[in-house]
Amino acid sequence: MSQNYDSAARPRIFRDTFLALWHHRALIQILVKRDIAVRYKRSSLGLLWTLLNPLLTSLVLWFVFITIFSARLPDGTQFAPYLFAGVLTVTFFTQGFNQSADSIAQGAGILTKVYIPPQVLAFSGSLSNAVNFLFGLVALAVISLITGDGISIEAPLTIFVIICMLMYVTGLGLMVAILYIRYDDTRSIFGILISFMMYLSPIFYPKEILSERMLTIVNANPLTSYLDVFRHVFSNTGVATTSDWLYMSLSSAFIFVIGIRIFSRAWPKTVVML
């Protein structure tokens, strides 16, 4: 890689960020591998451990909600695959966001000694959660086959959902990483905001039970469009409208661009606080 450095060179934010990610692709690969390896090395269950968490979460929710709703949703689809698809997506979102936002403060030990573009850490954080999501898809496929919902022929389009989510959580993570370093109390604020976003999206309830007003709010949540599109393309357990597709693509691109911009501008003044 070209390693000449001139602090006076004019930064070109987007070109520099993408080049940095490209130049450090080997490091990103290693960081993602390390992340997954560390996660499963600690337990005797191995790789299953990464799946156990969303599976158990789904199981608990399933027990709770099966008593409220029946095993089938109002439109006749099975509740279990609907629920698990929701939990998987939201796990990707929350853990991807948390890891991406935390990665830079946690990497302070490295970032203050060796030159690593910090965006590399944030991106690796989201990427390793995308890999976890992929593992989860295998489990979801099994559940969908058992309940008889099957897998849609459009399932490969899930890759588009993954790319959008990657951009979305990386963008958000980069923005919030700056706040996490600058202000100690922002962590708890974002914890609350994220759970707010979770409950205002149809993870474990069908949209049909919502009142008109609540539906407007839930649909305004970008997370809802991800859930709709993913459920629709994977096993047709949800309805994805054109506006869902548009909202998902545009919000992810917007957040990604804004995140990179805010981060690159704020970083030189933030790095001294690490």
Partner: peptide
């Protein structure tokens, strides 16, 4: 180490 940018002035480094 390129970890900090200079507030003013210039730093140039050639190579790894």
């Amino acid at each position: 180490a390129r970890v900090l940018p200079p507030t003013s002035g210039r730093v140039q480094i050639k190579g790894s």
